[in-house]
Computed example of a mutant assay.
Amino acid sequence: MSLNDLIAARSYGELLIACFALCASLTVIGLVSGYAAERAAWKRGRKVFDVPLKRGQLRHEMIGTALFHLLFVPVLAGVLASGAMQFSSGWIAEIAGFFVPWYTFQLGYYAMHRAMHSKALFWMHRWHHESLVTTPMTGLSMHPAEAIGWIVMMLVPPVVLSHFGVLGAGGWLVFLAVHWSGNIAGHANAEIMPARSTRATTLLWSNPISYHSLHHARFDGHYGFVAATMDFLFGTEFPDWLAVHTRVFGGTPMKALKEKLAPKE
Rank of each mutant, 00 (worst) to 15 (best):
E146K: 00
I151R: 01
L67N: 07
R126E: 09
H69R: 00
G97W: 00
I63H: 06
A120V: 15
H117P: 03
F49R: 07
G139Q: 00
M112C: 12
F105H: 06
H113S: 01
S131N: 07
L76N: 00
M142A: 08
C19D: 12
P101M: 07
V32S: 02
H143I: 01
E61H: 13
Q57N: 06
H113Q: 07
V79D: 03
T104L: 14
V28K: 08
T135V: 08
M112E: 12
Q57P: 14
T104H: 07
R59A: 15
W123H: 09
V133G: 03
I92K: 08
A24L: 10
S89R: 05
S118T: 15
T134I: 12
R114K: 15
G34A: 13
A77R: 08
A66E: 05
M116Y: 01
P52I: 07
M153V: 00
L155T: 01
K54T: 11
L121M: 14
M112T: 13
T134V: 15
G56I: 05
D50E: 14
E38T: 11
C23N: 15
R55N: 10
W42K: 09
V73C: 12
V79R: 00
I92L: 14
V152A: 13
H60E: 10
K47A: 13
F49N: 00
T134A: 08
L140V: 03
H129Q: 02
W91V: 13
T27K: 10
H143G: 03
P74H: 06
S89H: 08
H129K: 02
A115K: 06
L107A: 15
E94V: 09
V73M: 04
E146Y: 01
P52T: 12
A40T: 12
